[in-house]
Design a protein around this nucleic acid. Sequence first.
DNA 1: ATAAGTTTGTGAAGATTTTCACAAGCTCCC
DNA 2: GGGAGCTTGTGAAAATCTTCACAAACTTAT
Lengths: 212, 212
Amino acid sequence: MTLPTKRIAESTVRRLSMYLRYLEGLDAVGQRTASSDELAQLCGTTPAQVRKDLSFFGSFGKRGLGYPVHVLTERLQEILGLRQAWQVVIVGAGKIGSALAEYRGFKQRGFQVVGVYDKNPEKIGRPWGDAVVRDMSTLASDVTAHHVDIAVLAIPADDAQDVVDQIVTAGIRAILSFAPTSLHVPSHVAVKTVNMAMELEGLSYALTNRGA
Amino acid sequence: MTLPTKRIAESTVRRLSMYLRYLEGLDAVGQRTASSDELAQLCGTTPAQVRKDLSFFGSFGKRGLGYPVHVLTERLQEILGLRQAWQVVIVGAGKIGSALAEYRGFKQRGFQVVGVYDKNPEKIGRPWGDAVVRDMSTLASDVTAHHVDIAVLAIPADDAQDVVDQIVTAGIRAILSFAPTSLHVPSHVAVKTVNMAMELEGLSYALTNRGA
DNA sequence: ATAAGTTTGTGAAGATTTTCACAAGCTCCC
DNA sequence: GGGAGCTTGTGAAAATCTTCACAAACTTAT
């Protein structure tokens, strides 16, 4: 069904995700079609970029009219793999993991939190959202037993690689890390890192060198 | 002092930030020099990339030896604008803002939280870290009065553009947004957006299309 | 002092991503 | 039904970013 002949750039996938967000909004208010120009303005990109991105996956639009909102919404969900449920564990029962689990769009889009883990004895056993914080020592075996797809790492940088090695061995397939460190994984495991310090430092750079 | 003749790519700046993180670590344990190869392995990039990135700002290394850790650390801090204090406000007194303010590297690198804002009357006036949550209606005037440099937005997508417009008018120069929406600002304002949903969807895409 | 062994700095080549530009196709109105 | 007016889809061009490859320069050993 989804058969992009070439490898799709990460930047393209990020934009697809953004198109989807706005298309869902347009669909909700009953708008039937949207042009590449309209999508581009909403997403802060260019019409040509929108058309090119979508063209990798087929031709959905009608010339003279634009793209059918509802159809394209479903197609993007399919392309992005959002029409199925993913099993997610959150590692680190702190503020970040909590913020993520709280975010309504999270569950809505098929990301099911099946476990929360921490190594701090004071946190283990405590209720946490719908779940209970479990001992990190059971993480690896749980990942294997429940076929967990994605692990969200919200733990200190120094602990991150060790946990990654464990869950990779246990069969994890994707990792979203908030630890400010680079992670080494085999090539079949997908990794994204969100590094807040890096973003802030990017702003600091921009403020410092704005004239140049 | 810092005079990169060309515009520096955002990806380069992100890597500089990462080099700095590891260099600080090496410096702390007393290592005197580091080769491009060592830095590349730590950061998950290539030696050529490291050398190219650093070469934009001058030649810091010694052939046959590598880069002087301490000198390069200071130079990168300077380049990234981290040898001065930035005034930061956090908008939205929720989990994300709290996680950020809690992060020790935050203050350590010169990002001073001078105010936390929320529009929820139940939160206004409550203690929050070292500060007290203030009414969002005072945000704009505070930004102007205290020459705030950076605003961290941890609020719902629907509220984001409105707040952005206010603080831009009030003189903000940089924004780090966690709201899952694109923001429109004049070109003299720097913006970074961290979109967790987008990252997760990127992983979903990778899981779905891993074979291709 | 010399030779052997490293490692930087950097033009040039290569790869990737974005933008351009326009033919082809669709709608709507008269 | 035909023409005016939009909008897509897409090769090709342009821009951007990464990798290559090697001379130059430094260290260390002898």
